[in-house]
């Protein structure tokens, strides 16, 4: 089964799962960062206009600092998110899924130079497209990874149903599917929901609306409701 998840098992035997982010959102996030950086540089440039040649010097220093340390600053102090990454819900983490450290962030950002070669991040793009977890060269060297940040799920309004105890033999994935059927009652069409409920006829011995109502009741029991 092909998927883009990234799994790590801790020494305590706990499975951690993250969703690796691919080249397209990362490129767009980078474009947003470039936009912000240019804005800042333009503002600094305007402010330094009166300072003459010294102003140009200061501006160049600022440009240098922004180019190389803007990402480092945000990645380490702002939970792995530069403003562009934040806009796309991305974050940088170490490849054991711990928060990115100063050293790793420095390495991955200094090696942007390698990813840039020969022009316009061609190497980086190719490396991201071919790598298993969408890592560019800097990521591979620093042992980092860009993943999607887990968003808090907003509570969904559930249809009324009296909770009923589930049948036995339900594995976790089955339970999740039942809960999902309940939670997506607004997104799936009624006919499709009945069709899905009919699939389980050998277990429920019910059909159509009756089966759907029963599965919803089981789902709401699984979510913690008690009749």
């Amino acid at each position: 089964m092909l998927d883009t998840t990234y799994n790590v098992e801790t020494p305590e035997g706990i499975d951690l799962r993250a969703r690796a982010a691919g080249p397209v959102p990362r490129i767009l996030a980078y474009a947003v960062d470039v936009f912000y950086r240019s804005l800042i540089l333009a503002a600094i440039g305007l402010a330094l206009l009166f300072a003459g040649v010294a102003g140009i010097g200061i501006w160049l220093v600022c440009a240098f600092l922004l180019e190389w340390f803007y990402p480092v600053f945000f990645e380490v102090l702002r939970r792995g998110q530069t403003p562009g990454k934040k806009a796309f819900g991305l974050m940088v983490v170490n490849d054991n899924l711990t928060p990115v450290s100063w050293g790793a962030s420095f390495v991955r950002n200094l090696l942007r130079f390698a990813d840039f070669m020969p022009f316009a991040y061609a190497t980086g793009v190719i490396s991201m497209a071919l790598g298993r977890h969408f890592q560019r060269l800097g990521d591979l060297a620093a042992g980092t990874l860009v993943v999607y940040r887990e968003e808090e799920k907003a509570p969904v309004a559930l249809p009324d149903s009296t909770p009923l105890p589930p049948p036995q033999n339900l594995q976790q994935a089955d339970q999740q599917a039942l809960v999902s059927l309940l939670e997506r009652h607004d997104d799936l069409s009624e006919a499709r929901q009945r069709e899905l409920a009919n699939l389980l006829e050998p277990m429920t011995r019910k059909r159509d609306n009756e089966a759907l109502a029963y599965l919803r009741s089981v789902g709401s029991w699984l979510l913690g409701g008690r009749g």
């Binding site: 994935a173 089955d174 599917a177 059927l181 997506r184 499709r192 899905l196 699939l199 050998p202 277990m203």
Partner: peptide, 19 residues
């Protein structure tokens, strides 16, 4: 998948087969 609940369908079929 989102509109038609394919994930749910696959899981349900899987469950029946296992049973």
């Amino acid at each position: 998948i989102e509109l038609e609940g394919w994930d749910i369908e696959i899981q349900f079929r899987d469950f029946l087969e296992r049973q």
